[in-house]
Design a protein around this nucleic acid. Structure first.
Lengths: 169, 169
DNA sequence: ATAGACACGTGAGTC
DNA sequence: TGACTCACGTGTCTA
């Protein structure tokens, strides 16, 4: 018959696909065909799960970094609490601290004065200050001396302290 | 024979696996077994590729956000290329752009002059500038007008452009 | 020898 | 009608 040869090629072709599948699936329990198939489905499901996990993680991280990069270091805390573009950054350089505050003008009256009050309350001595207004935004770059103890190791605490006091009342 | 029944169950089992595989693979060209197998391998490879892409993207984003949050907007590009604390941030506000550059003094001669050269080269008109030196760090806060076209939609490109020119030569 | 897995040829069904 | 896929029973091989 001609059928026998056709069937021969069909089996041969099918086995080729099996080998291809074997090469595509890394974890193979047994060289058995049935095992290969179930291994393939479990592997596919693993990939699907990992894919979903990665996608959600990526979206989460991208959301966070959007918050950060959008405002060039926009403050998550401020965003969460005010919904506006208040940004406070603190960075220590030796015994001094750089403080950078971005504040929308409409957010509060005389943000500069308010910031100075806060710094006074926190007993932070001002070494240098540069304040400018661009459009609706007030920019404050301030260099302060840091007290011998307290904030020395906690830039974040200091940042949060300034932020809370700015937002309170 | 007893073999016939065993073989019957084996085929039956194998077909169950085939059906499971069918349910695991979303894109099926034909209901053919061979097609199913090749569809499975292509789908697996698609998942693998997407997985790698997501992983690298995630790592990339995580690296960026790590750099950003670690140094209060530290710059990945600068860190990678200089190993020092050069930081360039760009932020658009309407038709103006805020540029903030942190540069260690020992990194280059007169970083302010160099930065001005760069801004001139990029044809960015200076609206306001505040430059101060604290310890070993030079701080530049500059407000420039943005050309009608070009950087308007690409803060990042502008940031990178400034950074590259600062680092070149 | 006993069980499990496979390839083979064959008949049957489909387009 | 071929061209195609599939299920079946059978013989063979290995552990």
């Amino acid at each position: 018959m001609d059928n026998v040869e056709a069937e021969r090629q069909r089996r041969q072709n099918l086995n080729r696909r099996f080998y291809e599948l074997r090469s595509a699936v890394p974890k193979i329990s047994k060289m058995d065909k049935a095992s290969l198939l179930s291994d393939a489905v479990t592997y596919i499901n693993e990939l699907k799960a990992k894919n979903k996990e990665l996608e959600s993680k990526l979206q989460h991280v991208q959301n966070l970094s959007n918050c950060v990069t959008h405002g060039a270091a926009a403050d998550h805390y401020a965003k969460a609490n005010t919904g506006m573009g208040l940004v406070v950054e603190v960075k220590f350089v030796g015994s001094e601290a750089l403080i950078r505050v971005e504040c929308p003008n409409m957010m509060m009256n005389h943000p500069a004065a308010r910031l100075m009050d806060v710094l006074r309350d926190l007993q932070l001595q001002i070494h240098h200050a540069s304040i400018s207004s661009v459009k609706h935004l007030m920019l404050h770059d301030i260099v302060v001396g840091v007290p011998e103890q307290g904030f020395m190791t906690m830039e974040e605490a200091m940042r949060i302290a300034i932020l809370r006091r700015l937002l309170s009342n």
